[in-house]
Design a protein around this nucleic acid. Structure first.
Length: 1008
RNA sequence: GCUCAAGUGGCGGAAUUGGUAGACGCGCCGGAUUCAAAAUCCGGUUCUUCGGAGUGCGGGUUCGAUUCCCGCCUUGAGUACCA
């Protein structure tokens, strides 16, 4: 009986599906364990071998935890809203729901054939109305909430309204829009509904705000910054205009501090946490207000500039306030127009115009050019009362902090460069620091000087002191700033969740939750409308009837009872921000998940996915979870205890090399195509030698259609340097390469008929005709992609070697977190291992396993393996356990082990990695239940006790030979035995050792 | 620029607390089997001037360093005028 993996795998996949072997129960006496993969976007290309890497790792862990007696939740689903399906719809008219469903089918087939232990009864799809009903529901909850800073949590908007009614908004400590006008309770009551709704929007956790976007009228679409080059569209060169659009935003900034603090509670990788910390960008410092001096005090004529203006700045270095020699505002700063003197007006306006023309990208890319303009106005230093010139400069960003800085050239390199460029003084306020060449930006080793009451203090002391003094003046306070911006939540796309929102008098109204889901309407075209509205603007049945509570035809809109619906859809991260909770109770129609299910499963114990989601999905989902927690809707405020990023599997691209001449333009010469093997390319790639065999032979081949005299003429041109030669490399499909990097020339010609007449020169330098020589390709590691022809499909691997081989090999490639290249040739190693394993159990005449007593060696092999595999799984070191299995099978084969006491537990160890072969052999051993129900073998250290040790004997730290000595020898006995050994004397060559280091059970090191 | 990660044979990688560097596998070389090939099995495979040398480079700590410390170099990822 041979190892017929195709039959075995099909058999057990069917068995698992029919018996629902991996269905998780929401009620169980067992402890729970939740293993989650980041769910995939089902793309049309299907899976390649890189995609399942993380799924295999999590599957091994999930299966291991089942053997350990846990009730394991290991679900899978699809993040099925998204751009590619929509692009395809635009091109073909095919409804995205149809392509998405087809793609999911392909994914499911591919996932099934790898033998994952997913509980498919819990599958979710974000584009399914029964799922996005709850995405819409959560959106409504966000709309109906505000962030109370005093309670440090989200609260219902009705609480806020109560406060407004009883005392106005002056005491409200909320995260909200800037510049909200204060009002009293009486005023609130006099406001009309629209006014009240406008005010409430400024507090809600999701709110409408005007945002500037790049609008291209010719293309009828919004463009991202990187789609615009020199002010025109990258495609077609159409003009682009800045347009304000009303967009939904999420007030994630309210959670900045909690998102930061929460990182300390969760076991995620340091690099990922670091990314999130950088993204949140907390800086601690001070807010300082500088009074603008009325211009007449400075001899200017601009009487209209009043002293009441104040420039607010944020600084992380309030300790350097005496080093301020100018202030800089962003050109877009709203005060600029108000404070500029008539004399400077022309210059300032020209500068603003010039910077406005430059795109954000240009400004960011061009950091070196220093530019700016003086406003003509001065501000007053809060302590010295000296006038400080106010400049504008585009190195100050309008979007960060207050859009204005106090410039301290001695302590900030950008301020320093600006000051040098415009000849502004650079006062030094650091004791013993040379600032003649550059600023001293460090906070360490600072002793403040020339700074009045701060003299002699260090950074910390001075910061504390100056904030106290600023507070006394009422011109500043300690402040913390975050880089994290509120997130735009609207997309001008079709294939996303519709908002449960209609508009009355321009104000957004939530549809009552009991009428959800609001389904995506049908549209004729998936493009934006001619008037620039999002694709939903094409829908003819897209209005809300507030009497019937249903979506009705647009014709009926009367703005009394029937109102227009929102035309934007939600972004990709909406559905993925809470799906991990839905898996706990996926079919619930009353809630996004029941309280019981949420309290039983609570959170994800292990989450595996790619690091590309570090600041997107993984931040937004933490934000939503914290919000749901505040509202008492989930029991924990961090949803994933442990997270691992799997590395990417890279492709090993293959290249052919064409050796070709480079003629001057309009050459009449025609030549034969010559492809050379890799070693020839390697030999000549740097320099082509004109007077050796290779060149003369190849030259003759290339120009074989010419007469000898003509060839001589061409050769002359070559020697004169008129014709040069070089190599052209081309990607070749890795499917045409064998395990020795040899190209199948005939198949290649079928794949690329234009090379039908090409001449192939092989490794030996011979023209390939039959099998006289071989053509080897060059290889390079690159990202796996269709265009590089290095994509390897798991389907073919499963056919040729089986899913168990694929699973083992993906793990065997290297550490889970690392980037590593795929090379299909290597799979024969793990495949051979499985065959060897099979032969250990099954001989030509049937099962070999019997009830003989296991030998000491076999017991040692088994327990060594149990220990190592258990440690490896718990450390996510799956590559090393594959090696361990190989060693175990090699040893047991050598021992001719047939004992059931050894071979049965070995199958349980292996089953998380290679579940199909393990199930098959398990059932052949007489078991009727799935191996997944078997307990994990117990490690017994007594089998590993040794009576002797093969000591490495080192001389000055270098191992020279080994010596077998009894384990119970003490240090003195060891030393005697070692010194008496003739090899020791040989090494010493008569010298007396200075010292002998002996660590019993470990090593012997002789010094001298 | 900053932050993070990583540099070990021809290749993927191993060495878990400082203790025999190169486990395991691929590839390659040699052999057995075969009419032949595939498959399978056995042996070898860091380099070497055969003394030794050797884990990106230069130092240091130690009896002993891939592992710890200091300084650099290279590669990859993220981020970028963040005050």
């Amino acid at each position: 009986m041979t190892y017929n993996f195709n039959d075995i795998e099909a058999k057990w996949q069917k068995y698992w599906a029919e018996n629902q072997t991996f269905k998780a129960e929401n009620n169980s006496e067992k402890p729970k364990f939740y293993v989650l993969d980041m769910f995939p976007y089902p793309s049309g290309a299907g899976l390649h071998v890189g995609h399942p890497l993380g799924y295999i790792a999590s599957d091994i862990y999930a299966r291991y935890k089942r053997h350990q007696g846990f009730n394991v939740l290991h679900p899978q689903g699809y993040d099925s809203f998204g751009l590619p399906a929509e692009q395809y719809a635009i091109q073909t008219g095919q409804h995205p729901a149809i392509t998405t469903a087809e793609n999911i089918k392909t994914y499911r087939r591919q996932l099934d054939q790898i033998g994952f232990s997913f509980d498919w009864s819990r599958e979710v799809r974000t584009s399914d109305p029964s799922y996005y009903k709850w995405t819409q529901w959560i959106f409504i909850q966000l709309f109906n909430s505000w962030y109370n800073k005093d309670a440090d949590k989200a609260e219902d908007i009705s609480e806020l309204i109560k406060i407004f009614v009883s005392e106005g908004n002056s005491k409200v400590n909320a995260v909200c829009d800037d510049n909200i006008e204060p009002f009293s309770a009486e005023e609130w009551k006099t406001f009309d509904t629209v006014k009240q709704q406008q005010i409430l929007l400024q507090y809600r956790l999701t709110y409408l705000a005007e945002t500037e976007v790049n609008w291209c009228p010719a293309l009828g679409t919004v463009l991202a910054n990187d789609e615009i080059v020199n002010g025109v569209s990258e495609r077609g060169g159409h003009p682009v205009i800045r347009k304000k659009m009303t967009q939904w935003s999420m007030r994630i900034s309210a959670y900045a501090e909690r998102l930061l603090q929460g990182l300390d509670k969760i076991d995620w990788t340091d690099s990922l946490k670091e990314s999130q910390r950088n993204w949140i960008g907390k800086s601690v410092g001070a807010a300082v207000s500088f009074k603008v001096l009325a211009n007449n005090e400075n001899g200017s004529h601009a009487e209209h500039v009043e002293a009441s203006h104040v420039i607010d700045v944020f600084t992380t270095r309030p300790d350097t306030i005496f080093g301020v020699s100018f202030m800089t505002l962003a050109p877009e700063h709203e005060l600029v127009s108000q404070i500029t003197t008539p004399a400077q007006k022309a210059e300032v306006e020209a500068y603003i115009l010039a910077t406005a023309k430059r795109s954000e990208r240009d400004r960011m890319a061009d950091v070196k050019t220093i530019s700016g303009a003086f406003t003509g106005t001065y501000a007053e230093h809060p302590f010295t009362k000296q006038p400080i010139p106010v400049w504008i400069g585009d190195y100050v960003l309008a979007g960060y902090g207050t859009g204005a800085v106090m410039s301290v050239p001695c302590g900030d390199q950008r301020d320093y460069d600006f000051a040098k460029h415009f000849n502004i003084p650079i006062p030094n306020i650091f004791e013993g620091v040379d600032i003649s060449k550059e600023a001293y930006a460090s906070k360490d080793n600072v002793v403040i000087a020339n700074s009045d009451f701060l003299n002699g203090l260090n950074y910390k002391e001075a910061t504390k002191k100056v904030i106290q003094e600023l507070e006394k003046l009422g011109q500043g306070e300690g402040k913390t700033n975050y880089r994290l911006r509120d997130a735009v939540f609207s997309r001008q796309r079709y294939w996303g969740e519709p908002f449960p929102v209609y508009y009355v008098n321009g104000m957004p109204q939530m549809i009552d939750a009991k009428h959800l889901p609001i389904r995506l309407p049908e549209v004729e075209k998936y493009l934006p409308t001619e008037t620039g509205e999002p694709p939903l603007g094409n829908a003819t049945v897209w209005a809300w009837d507030t009497n019937k509570n249903e979506v009705v035809s647009n014709d009926l809109i009367d703005n009394k009872t029937i109102h227009p619906l929102e035309l934007n859809t939600m972004p990709g991260w909406a559905g993925s921000s809470w799906y991990f909770n839905r898996y706990m109770d996926p079919d619930n129609t009353e809630a996004f998940a029941s309280k019981e299910a949420l309290n039983y499963w609570k959170d994800v114990d292990l989450y595996i996915g790619g690091s590309e989601h570090a600041t997107g999905h993984l931040l937004y989902s933490r934000f939503w979870q914290k919000f749901l927690f505040d509202k008492g809707l989930v029991p924990v405020d961090e949803y994933a205890k442990k997270l691992i990023n799997q590395g990417m599997i890279l492709g090993t691209s293959a290249f052919t090399y064409e050796f070709m001449p480079s003629f001057d333009a309009d050459s009449k010469y025609r030549y034969n195509t010559v492809l050379v093997s890799n070693s020839i390319f390697e030999k000549y790639k740097k320099k082509i030698v004109l007077d050796d065999d290779f060149f003369s032979t190849t030259f003759n081949i290339m120009f074989s259609s010419y007469s000898s005299s003509e060839k001589l003429k061409i050769r002359e041109l070559v020697d004169k340097g008129k014709i040069g030669f070089g190599f052209m490399d081309r990607h070749v499909d890795v499917a045409l390469i064998n395990s020795s990097d040899e190209l199948n020339v005939n198949e290649f010609k079928k794949w690329r008929p234009e090379f039908d007449d090409a001449i192939f020169i092989g490794e030996k330098g011979e023209i390939i005709e039959g099998d006289n020589d071989v053509y080897k390709v060059g290889r390079e590691v690159e990202k796996m992609s269709k265009s590089k022809y290095n994509v390897v499909n798991p389907d073919q691997i499963c056919v040729d070697y089986g899913a168990d081989s694929l699973r083992l090999y993906e793990m065997f490639l290297g550490p889970l977190e690392q980037y590593k290249p795929w090379n299909t040739a290597g799979i024969t190693g793990v495949h051979g291992f499985l065959k060897k394993l099979w032969k250990l159990y099954v001989g030509e005449n049937g099962l070999l396993v019997n009830d003989t007593e296991p030998s000491k060696e076999s017991l040692k092999t088994l327990h060594k393996t149990i220990k190592k595999v258990q440690e490896d799984i718990e450390n996510f070191s799956f590559n090393t356990s594959v090696s361990t299995f190989m060693i175990a099978v090699n040893e047991l084969t050598a021992q001719k082990c047939t004992s059931k006491d050894i071979l049965e537990p070995l199958l349980v160890l292996l089953s998380p990695y290679a579940p199909h072969i393990a199930e098959e052999l398990w059932s052949q051993l007489g078991h009727n239940e799935s191996i997944s129900t078997a307990p994990f073998p117990k490690f017994d250290a007594s089998h590993l006790v040794e009576s002797s040790k093969n000591y490495p004997i080192s001389f000055n730290g270098k191992m020279r030979f080994t010596l077998e000595l009894p384990m119970d020898f003490n240090a003195q006995q060891i030393e005697e035995a070692v010194m008496a050994n003739e090899k020791t004397q040989e090494q010493l060559q008569g010298r007396t050792p200075k010292k002998v280091i002996i660590v019993p059970g470990k090593i012997v090191n002789i010094v001298g």
